[in-house]
Design a protein around this nucleic acid. Structure first.
Lengths: 339, 339
DNA sequence: GCCGTCGATGATATCGCTATCATATTGTCA
DNA sequence: TGACAATATGATAGCGATATCATCGACGGC
C-alpha cells in the first residue's frame, strides 16, 4: 500500500497524471467531456496516491459542509437510537454525515438552537419532536435560511416538509381496543405537556370514548413526563384507591412500564386486575412481563423519510408533500377483558 | 435583530470596525496584543452583524475539522445512548462536534473503518468495543495517523490512551455474590464471541468459582450474542431440563432479561426457583420485574474520559495513562438464596 | 472553404479564514 | 539619548478544492 505519511492533494494527483487540477476535479465529480483514456490515467493516480478529497476545501468553495444535524430531546434511548438509525440509513450511501445534537429542553432554549446549528455548520437539520412542533424554532430556522425536515409534527402542517404518523387515529385505535374488551373505567397517564403529541393522543382517546358513549373521569387523568418514574408515580396514585380504574392508557411505553411496576407493588395482577397499554412500541415493551399491548410508532421510517426530504431540498429539489407512515396496534399480553 | 439574509464574513466585520481582518481574527482567537478599545469595537461589530466564523474556512487553514467520530457496534440502545451522552458531555463546551458512526460489524469491515473515518473528515475517533479491541483497526488508524482513544479495551493495553473498567474483577464480584447466597449450580450465558469483554467476564466468573472450590459445568455454558433473543433461547435450553441450574450468570442485561422471560414461560419463579443476574445496568435492568441484580458499568464516565483524552491529544497534549473507572455491584431482586 | 458549434483541456480567481512577515509605535535601560 | 525590545496593527500569501472563462481542435453544413 502507499504508505505516504502526508495526505496527498489534488495537485499531487494532477502532477502524477500529467493534467491540470481542474481535469482531476472533473473526473472526481463525474463531469462530462473528459476522454476515456485520461479518466483512466487519473483514476489510477488517485488509487496510487490513495487520494481522498479534502472535504473542508470542497465545502468552502461549494458552501456546503455535508453535515446534517439531528435535534431531539426525547429521553427514551430506544426512541433516540431508532431515530438515528433511520437518518443514518438514508445517509449511508450519501456523502453527508450525521451530527447528533440532543437538547436538554427544546422549550427552554428554542432561541439558542439556531446558533447551535450555525456553530455546528450543518447544511440542514432533521427535527424530532418537540422541536419539530416549536413555532419559535421553525421561525428562527427560516430566518436563518436553514433547511429542515420535521418528524411527527402535530401543528402547523404547512410549515416545511414533514413525515408523521396519525397520532390521533392511533390513540383512538388503542383506546377503542380497551373499550372493545369491555373496559369502561379507564384512566389516562399523559405525557410531557410541552410535547404536542400528548394532546393529540388525548384527543384520540376522547374520540374513542365518545364513540362508545363513555364519559372520561377527570380525576383519572394523571400528568406524567414520558419517563418511567413519572409513570410509576402516576400508577401508584391511580391504583392505590378504592375506586381504581380497570384499565390504564399510558401515552408511552416507559410510563406504561412504570404503571406496571406500581401494580406489582400493590399486589395487583396485570392484566387480571388491571389492564395497562402503552404507546410507541419501544424496546422495553417486548422485554417486560406481561409484554405491553401498544402502538408501533414508525420512528425509523419517519426519520429516514424526513432525512430523505431534507436531502432533496439540499440538492435543490422540492420539498414534497407531508408523508404519513402507518402505525400498528400490537396486541400482546398486558390487556385483557375486565373481571 | 440584524436580519441580513446572507451570512456576514470576517471582512464585513473588519470593515464595520475599521480594522484589518487579521485583527478581527486575533480577537476571535483570543490572541494577545490587541488594545482594549479596539477589542470592544470589534466585539460590537460582531454582535451587530451577528457574525459567526465559517468553520470550514477555519478548518481548511488549520487542518482541523473539529469533528470527532464515535465508532460502536453495540446493539443495545441504552448503551449507545450512554456512550453518546458521555462523549457529548465532554464536548459540550468545546467547539468539537460529534459524528456518530455505527458499524454493522467491526469484525467484518475492520479495514474499511479508516476510509470511512477519512471520508467523514474527523480529527480523531473514540472507539467503543469491539473496535477498541481490534488489532487491525488500531493498526490502520496508526498508519493513517488518526488520533484515537479507546473505551474498555481488554487487550493490547499499551496501544493508545484508554479508559476502562475492570471486567474481570466485576464479573468475579457478581459471581461471588451468587456463591455467597449459597448457589452452587450456576449456569453462564456468554456474549458475542467477537467482543473480548465476554472472555474477560468469563475469566472473572471462573476465578470466583475457583475461589469457592466450585467447578463449573461445561454443559451449563451457553453462547449468546448480547441480545434479548439469544438470552431467551439460551434460557430456554438451560431451564427446560431436569437438572436445571439454580442460578444464571448472564454477561449482559438484555440476555438476562431474555432468560427471565424463558423462566416465566416455563412457569419458574425468579428468584424463588432460579436466580438470574446480568451485567451493564442498562435501562431495562430497572424496568423489568424482578429488577435485575447486575454490575453497573460506568459507560458514561468511560466515554467522557476517553473523549477528554482524545481532545488532549488533538490539542497537542500527551495521551495520559489508561484510566480505570469503578464499577458497582447493584443488588436488586432477581437473585436470592436457593431453596 | 469558411463559420459556427461542440468537445476537450488548462489558467486563474475565489471561497473565508489564519499564518507569516513587515511595519509602525511605544517603553526601557545603559 | 540612542539602541533594542515589546506591543500593536496591517498586507499578503496560502489552505485545497471548484467555477468561470479562455483556448484550441475537430466536425458539419452551406
Amino acid at each position: 500500500m502507499a504508505g505516504g505519511s502526508k495526505r496527498s492533494t489534488i495537485i499531487d494527483v494532477a502532477r502524477a497524471a500529467g493534467v491540470s487540477t481542474k481535469t482531476v476535479s472533473r473526473v472526481l465529480n463525474r463531469e462530462p467531456h473528459v476522454k476515456r483514456e485520461l479518466q483512466d490515467r487519473i483514476r489510477a493516480a488517485i488509487v496510487e496516491l490513495n487520494y481522498q478529497p479534502n472535504v473542508l476545501a470542497q465545502g468552502l468553495v461549494r458552501r456546503r459542509s455535508h453535515l446534517i444535524g439531528l435535534i431531539y430531546e426525547n429521553p427514551s434511548p430506544s426512541y433516540v437510537v431508532e431515530l438515528q438509525m433511520g437518518a443514518l440509513d438514508r445517509l449511508k450511501d450519501e456523502r453527508y454525515r450525521l451530527v447528533v445534537l440532543p437538547v436538554g429542553s427544546v422549550h427552554e432554549r428554542a432561541t439558542e438552537i439556531v446558533s447551535l446549528l450555525r456553530a455546528a455548520a450543518v447544511d440542514g437539520v432533521v427535527l424530532a419532536p418537540p422541536a419539530s412542533d416549536h413555532p419559535v424554532v421553525l421561525r428562527e430556522l427560516e430566518a436563518a435560511q436553514l433547511p429542515y425536515a420535521r418528524i411527527a409534527p402535530t401543528r402547523m402542517p404547512e410549515k416545511g416538509p414533514s413525515t408523521s404518523m396519525d397520532d390521533v387515529a392511533a390513540a383512538r385505535e388503542i383506546a377503542r381496543y380497551l373499550l372493545s374488551l369491555g373496559h369502561r373505567d379507564i384512566a389516562i397517564i399523559k405525557g410531557e405537556p410541552t410535547h404536542c403529541s400528548s394532546e393529540a393522543r388525548l384527543l384520540g382517546y376522547s374520540q374513542a370514548f365518545a364513540d362508545a358513549d363513555v364519559s372520561p373521569r377527570l380525576d383519572w387523568i394523571e400528568q406524567g413526563h414520558y419517563t418511567f418514574e413519572s409513570g410509576l408515580e402516576a400508577g401508584r396514585r391511580l391504583l392505590d384507591r378504592p375506586d381504581r380504574p380497570s384499565a390504564i392508557l399510558a401515552q408511552n411505553d416507559d410510563m406504561a412500564v412504570g404503571a406496571l411496576m406500581a401494580a406489582r407493588e400493590l399486589g395487583l395482577g396485570v392484566p387480571e386486575d388491571v389492564s395497562i397499554v402503552g404507546f410507541d412500541d419501544s424496546e422495553v415493551a417486548r422485554l417486560v412481563w406481561p409484554r405491553l399491548t401498544t402502538i408501533r410508532q414508525p420512528v425509523f421510517e419517519m426519520a429516514a423519510t424526513a432525512t430523505s426530504m431534507l436531502l432533496d431540498q439540499l440538492e435543490g429539489g422540492s420539498a414534497g408533500p407531508a408523508q404519513v407512515h402507518p402505525h400498528e396496534l400490537l396486541i400482546r399480553e398486558s390487556a385483557a377483558a375486565p373481571r
